[in-house]
């Protein structure tokens, strides 16, 4: 497994865990409190911070485990990155249109915000899953 593949796997695992943690917290608060009382902004900031910090730590651990391959990127990695970003972009567009639908149906700002966060999370996850598929299957 190349450095890039390990790096993508690590970031994907971190994202899945942190997004799951965020949405579990949000949904548990929604079930207990009024939507106006749900404090999601702090959780959102914490979620972004956790993803950034844990991803950096993950990359450092991977780099230390095989320093000779650390940071190596070649044309195959770039091509896989581009193809995966395209798929992630399509998912994001579909999700954004769904959020627009929510907006037009008069949904509360809270739900629109959560739908946007979920859209970003989903497109990011799909992009990284596609990267792993392309690394495995070939491009």
């Amino acid at each position: 497994m190349s450095y890039q593949q390990k790096s993508v796997s690590a970031v994907l695992a971190i994202q899945l865990l942190v997004y799951a943690w965020y949405f579990t917290h949000i949904l548990s608060q929604v079930s207990e409190l009024d939507i106006e009382q749900v404090e999601y902004k702090t959780l959102l900031m914490l979620m972004i911070g956790l993803i950034v910090v844990l991803s950096i730590v993950g990359q450092i651990i991977i780099a230390i485990s095989k320093p000779s391959e650390a940071g190596e990127v070649d044309e195959r990695d770039r091509q896989i990155g581009l193809l995966s970003s395209r798929v992630g972009g399509i998912v994001l567009i579909i999700c954004v249109f769904s959020v627009l639908g929510l907006l037009m149906s008069g949904a509360q700002i809270f739900w629109i915000a959560q739908a946007l966060i979920a859209s970003l999370a989903l497109s990011d996850i799909v992009m990284r899953v596609m990267m792993l598929i392309y690394y495995q299957r070939g491009v």
Partner: peptide, 13 residues
């Protein structure tokens, strides 16, 4: 290029 890219080229991936 990386060793993994050579492997992918050799295997037709």
């Amino acid at each position: 290029v990386t060793r993994q890219t050579i492997i992918a080229i050799e295997h037709g991936k």
